[in-house]
Amino acid sequence: MSDVARLAGVSAQTVSRVSNGSPGVIEATRQQVIAAMNELGYRPNSAARALKRGSFRTIGVILFTLSTTGNVRTLEAIAARAAEEDYAITLIPVAAPTQAGVRGAFSRLNELAVDGIIVIMEVHLLDAATVSLPPGVHAVVVDSDASESYSVIDTDQADGARKAVEHLLDLGHSTVWHVAGPSESFASERRVNAWRSVLADRGCVEPALLRGDWSAESGYQAGLALASSDCTAVFAANDQMALGVLRAFHEKGVRVPQDVSIVGFDDIPDSTSFSPPLTTVHQDFAEVGRRCVDKVLKQMRENSTEPGLDLVPTRLVVRASTSAHVVAPRN
């Protein structure tokens, strides 16, 4: 800074004001200082500036995997919204989906320069008895039911599942089969519970539940089992498993939607290119990411914690994989 001040012919205090974007520096002087910075290759010391203002302008994001559509699209939205607020993000991956792995990720926060964190993981790994936040770090949790202890942002999983099942029943199907996600997933269990609740409310028989792991292959295996059953309507807990079900039905000669109607969940970009295009529940991952950043910044600015649940609405997108069920007349 002293070198820049000498070259520009100004005081070190003026250089400081220019580097911090402070007002009160005439434009000609500002340009003179910037030219000197560029000539000398000067860059402000971000660590020193952070210590001075007590803020690193960085948000940590803790998550398990980038292999799922939801995590990738939520992280993309978090990064975009953070950049709009002039914040960077630091990705803190969890080495293993265990309590020890989670504790390791949280302990790293003490070593990293972050002002707040966004946690994308399942609630069963946020046991308050074994995992605690570092003092003074504000946090928002995605996809969890830990709203008594944390500020939680989530898609309205239950309402989305209800819309899917009600749509199929309204088309005249007597019941709906469900290909669920993993039992340890909060989102999966919310969708399972909503599926059961709608069937019970409508007085429908509840078919046997099929479990997948979010992958198209697990949906394919479920589809092979369903192809030999008397099902006419299937609600898959995500679009990838719905894709697997479609493949299995095609191989077994089961027509969609003439024989069986299928609804997915997520509304991934490729769902319009499925054969047939997939009816699905749209999740607004971009809105989830934006709300996460806004919420954690609000906590940081107000030095507050806000336990509670903030749900992002879903909407049903009807395409060609569902149609009215017509009972063929008996001979």
Rank of each mutant, 00 (worst) to 15 (best):
E148W: 11
T69Q: 06
I34Q: 09
L125P: 09
V114K: 03
V288Q: 05
H250L: 00
S218K: 13
G172R: 03
N45Q: 05
P257L: 08
T29I: 01
V94Y: 02
G21F: 12
L125F: 14
A79K: 06
R103N: 00
A105F: 06
R247P: 09
W177C: 07
R315M: 02
E166D: 14
A95Y: 02
S55N: 03
A233N: 09
D159W: 05
F285M: 11
E287I: 00
V33W: 05
V94I: 15
P134S: 05
V192Y: 09
T272H: 12
Q283M: 10
T272E: 13
N331R: 09
D284F: 07
V205G: 01
S183L: 15
V293H: 10
P93K: 01
P276Q: 15
M241E: 03
R57F: 11
E39I: 13
D127Q: 07
V192D: 00
D154V: 11
R290E: 03
N331W: 05
V245D: 05
E189L: 15
D259C: 07
P97T: 04
V131G: 02
E166V: 10
L112C: 00
V141D: 03
S261N: 08
V141I: 14
A208P: 15
A286T: 10
G244K: 06
A225M: 13
L125T: 09
L168N: 09
N20V: 04
V327W: 01
H282T: 07
H124T: 13
D230K: 14
R17P: 00
L112Y: 06
V25N: 01
L75C: 04
S323I: 10
S183T: 13
E122I: 13
T74D: 01
I262W: 06
S107I: 03
I262D: 08
T175W: 14
L297C: 12
V234E: 04
Q99R: 04
S107P: 00
V327Y: 01
A12G: 03
L243K: 15
Q283H: 08
T14R: 02
A88Y: 12
T322A: 09
V327M: 01
S174F: 00
T305A: 13
A236D: 10
V260Y: 07
V245Y: 07
